[in-house]
Write a protein that binds this DNA or RNA. Sequence first.
RNA 1: AGCCGGAUGGUGUAGUGGUAGCACGACUGACUCUGGAUCAGUUCGCCAGGGUUCGAAUCCUUGUCCGGCUGCCA
Length: 576
Amino acid sequence: MSDRDEKSLGQETADSLPVNFIQTIITEDLKSGKNNGRVHTRFPPEPNGYLHIGHAKSICLNFGLAAANGGICNLRFDDTNPSKEEIEYVESIQDNVRWLGFDWEDRLYYASDYFDQLFEFACQLINKGQAYVCDLSAEEIREYRGTLTEPGKESPYRNRSIEENLDLFMRMKNGEFPDGARVLRAKIDMASPNLNMRDPVLYRIQHAHHHRTGDKWCIYPMYDYAHPLSDALESITHSVCTLEFADHRPLYDWCIEQVDYGKEIHGRPQQIEFARLNLTYTVMSKRKLRLLVEKGVVGGWDDPRMPTISGLRRRGYTPEAIRDFCDRIGVAKRNSTVDIALLEHCIREDLNRRASRVMAVLRPLKVVITNYPEDKVEWMTTENNIEQPEMGIREIPFAREIYIEQEDFMEDPPKKFFRLRPGGEVRLKSAYIIECQEVIKDDQGRIVELHCTYDPDSKSGGPNAGRRVKGTLHWVSAQHAIPAEVRLYDQLFLKENPDDEEEGKDFTSFLNPDSLEVLKDSLVEPSLADAAVESSYQFLRQGYFVVDPDSSSGKLVFNRIVGLRDSWAKIQNKQG
RNA sequence: AGCCGGAUGGUGUAGUGGUAGCACGACUGACUCUGGAUCAGUUCGCCAGGGUUCGAAUCCUUGUCCGGCUGCCA
């Protein structure tokens, strides 16, 4: 593991990476002796969808902060709404967090673990006169709440007796009332400028089957009530969440303050908000991602074009690259949109170091080397990673008939085209220099084959290999190459900010129709025959590719993770 | 309109009263049996006005702009 990898796991933060404002708060807390020097964070996903790269930021932050300060981090499922949550999601979330490289050890919790205590706490609030059962309908509650500028008005049920509230709440719990008939509300302040404090709902009736508690409950606590108290019960010290919860912090604090959950032993958690991650050319909301899955725009939550952890994994991103990315984007309170190019940089940097170089021809063009013996096969030596000599060398077969990339030949090339042209010379990587003698075309005038000659004196590694030509091409031997399917992925959206939905358009109208191109007739060098699923390679001169789980014995499928930086493409763009 | 946040190069992020830095991108050039990688270099910034101060991105003030909040979602 590199230095950076260790750092991002939090074992080492002292050097290089700038300290974020949350670490500053923790450092001060540690100095002042707050929480007895404990640092305890949590990652609290709701199991209603797959995790995405934005969650990775939160995961790295929470686990990283804990580890960097000698603390611990819990994984807790915020499963307070059974109508939206599923077991599939709790499993995928655990997989994702583990795969990213984080370990919650024995601290896997569910908000539903606390339903009994949460119920007791609610009774406690009722007994203190700080909560009441309200019979207003959802619409009435909305009307009574007032607006941003006008205060709300008190519910007619606000001053029920403690006994009546207790009785009603118990009967809510016992299933005597239908969904929506009554709620339990906190008695705070209907005139508060903060709408969250205008007697917020604490419990609602929902006759729904819960994936963990089954049919035991038909009342479920709201996030604003369950979250602070779950934090408290887990002795969380720093409860890190995203910006939109800042307005809820007074309510968070109210719950912590009013409920007697054992502050002496559990302490008081502090909520701290940071800005969620946005990425160019992608959407991040679970709702929109789910829509893409449900409408079949993509193949599933793990489609390689999705910004989900599962999607990135299948695309070929590594945990190291994702953690590095999360380290680099920083943590602040200002909303911002990170350039997707930074994510791509991170995976290129990681794979450049680790991936073996191999030869693969995506769109094959046949080349016959006319002066090369018919039956001869030479095994050429080539390095697995020229910058990492310890990764070793391997042998690749060379013969009279080979394939090169279609785009590496032009009959009438523009300026600065360093590849093969009629009468031109080019080196075949780790083999010989060849010269193009003849272009063979079919009836329609399409180029189907090239006849070339090779310079026997130019063999790579040989005594006379020093002769230089401008271009070097990758290739595969026709008789040895194995077929492969290659899936070329591109951005899912054409618009930099797909959330910016202009008049009448929704984000799906910005979808990139060419976000996936499937190549069925690609050819790869024979050493790849047994390539394992999820192993990644650099296809020389082209990019990084990973073996997709759709592969089976005899049928290799590769996903393009990311292309190499391509200065030729830039030149072409400039030339128009 | 009320409350809460926030404004530093193209993007992200440091700097907390003393020379505005780092990363990504872009652009030059060197090197190259990957038009990759690497190396060297260039370009570009403190939202605006006023004030405090020897000195302000930083403190005060006024304004502007941006984001969030009116679920029995989280």
